[in-house]
Design a protein around this nucleic acid. Structure first.
Lengths: 206, 206
DNA sequence: CAAAGATCGGTAACAGTGTTACCGACAAGA
DNA sequence: TCTTGTCGGTAACACTGTTACCGATCTTTG
């Protein structure tokens, strides 16, 4: 029960919503999370702050939209990882892609994992999305288990270990806690170290 | 060249400074980083906001004081780790103490490593303090290398790996990204996994 | 077709935040 | 004693997220 006008209006609102979100994304990437104020975004798209409140329900809604966008980008990046070679090679490539993505757009990583948007707490849909993205890592580990290149624990367990280590490495690197140049080799070393106890003779040969 | 009055005044300022810092610490632990506003702290100790600016030079100065306090607490905790057993046992105990401390006072950990105080960037002294605390971990690893319980890399390199993994585990656990109960065992598993590639036969026997 | 009702959005305000200009009170030095 | 200077309280400024008001526009009704 909706007139064509209502439908058009709703579509128009979707366009406006997308435009606002686009402005917010540019602001986040170009000037960092501190620039993400309601007034600034409104002035960027040339509307009043009220529009953001009716379309996003406040800054938290906008924060959640950016959160989801960040995970969507990460997911796209992980899906782009080629699957030449064995499952273990692919898993390592996924871990490398995770770091590359975080370093390429660190402010998204700050929004997703470092609480860069003060006061924002992820809602239900956001958490489901995060778990789905993390599931790609679990699947990568499961493939290695099936192929016999890893063994000794369940896939979620190993994926948890990888997730923790990888997150620690990336977040410290983003915060520039370390200052050495060869961070990439150290990252690879961390990943292989975590996986070593689960490597079979088959896997080690690779 | 200072009159007794000036000295007394300076000591009095030190007392006031300590009082304000105490109020800030209580506020941080009891109500979290969001409650740390200049006006709130001033009203807590019953003075004007101006005092905080003259004694700390703004909120950043107070943030840095809290940061230093957090590292001091962590350092005390790490120094309390008993040294019964071999160096590797002690290293593992230090890693466990690191997590215990972070989980016991998570808001301090948020201040130190998760940027809970928006806009605050660690200064020179703060970074030196952080490096000194991290040096305790390096020393723990070095002891293992000397005792022959670890081998295969330099102490700072292994300590970096441990630091990244441990930080990732703790920060994800604080953010309650995982929801399982047995996080302690998983943490131990992560630590041993990272160390496995560097364990000698001697170390493995323990 | 005109009038009543509803929804959207712009203006301007409110309650917060960090920060500072002003100004009175007090002690040090001439 | 009088000037000088420092310290601190008051009140403001610029900024934040958020919302009450109110005019404009569209839908529905008589």
């Amino acid at each position: 029960m909706s007139t064509p006008y209502q439908q058009a209006q709703r579509e128009g609102q979707d366009v406006v919503r997308a435009t606002i979100l686009e402005a917010a994304k540019n602001l986040l990437i170009n000037e960092g999370p501190a620039a993400l104020t309601v007034r600034r975004i409104a002035s960027e798209v040339g509307c009043s702050t009220k529009v953001i409140y009716t379309l996003f329900g406040g800054k938290d809604g906008l924060s959640e939209a950016l959160w989801l966008e960040g995970f969507a980008r990460l997911e796209r990046r992980l899906l782009d990882v080629p699957s030449d070679g064995g499952p273990l090679d692919r898993l390592m490539a996924m871990l490398a892609a995770y770091r590359d993505h975080a370093l390429a757009e660190p402010d998204y990583y700050r929004v997703m994992f470092l609480g860069a948007l003060p006061g924002f707490k992820a809602g239900e849909e956001a958490i489901r999305t995060a778990k789905r993205t993390f599931g790609m890592l679990v699947a990568g580990v499961a493939a290695c288990l099936e192929a016999g290149e890893l063994a000794g624990a369940e896939a979620p367990e190993i994926a948890d270990l990888l997730g923790m280590a990888v997150h620690g490495a990336v977040s410290l690197e983003i915060s520039s806690y370390f200052e050495e140049a060869d961070t990439s080799a150290r990252y690879r070393l961390l990943c292989t170290s975590v996986l070593t106890p689960f490597m079979t003779r088959d896997g080690r040969r690779t």
